[in-house]
């Protein structure tokens, strides 16, 4: 299984939750929190549930609850991907 990249995340986020007009998703967003990108908990739930299905990866609820920044989420997904592969 190939690594999950920020490009994968942006594609899925745009599809699942759109994008805030005042935010440039293509800018340097790795260390921004999702709320700073205009995404609420619903947007995050919809996005992570899509990622789970599309990449066949289990993302435990309690670990998702700890996610703050984009970098955190990418790390969690890739860590879980390496465990399951």
């Amino acid at each position: 299984m190939s690594a999950f990249t920020i490009e994968d995340l942006k594609r899925i986020m745009r599809d699942c939750a759109g994008e805030e007009e005042s935010v440039d998703l293509d800018g340097d967003i790795l260390d921004l929190r999702f709320e700073e990108l205009g995404y609420d908990s619903l947007a995050l739930i919809e996005t992570t549930s899509r990622i789970s299905r599309e990449f066949a990866v289990q993302l435990p609820e309690d670990e998702l609850g700890e996610i703050g920044t984009v970098r955190d989420l990418l790390a969690l997904i890739n860590q879980r991907l390496s465990v399951s592969s």
């Binding site: 939750a17 759109g18 994008e19 007009e21 947007a43």
Partner: peptide, 8 residues
Amino acid sequence: VPSRLVPQ
């Protein structure tokens, strides 16, 4: 409609 609202 704002992009954020379209999927929902």
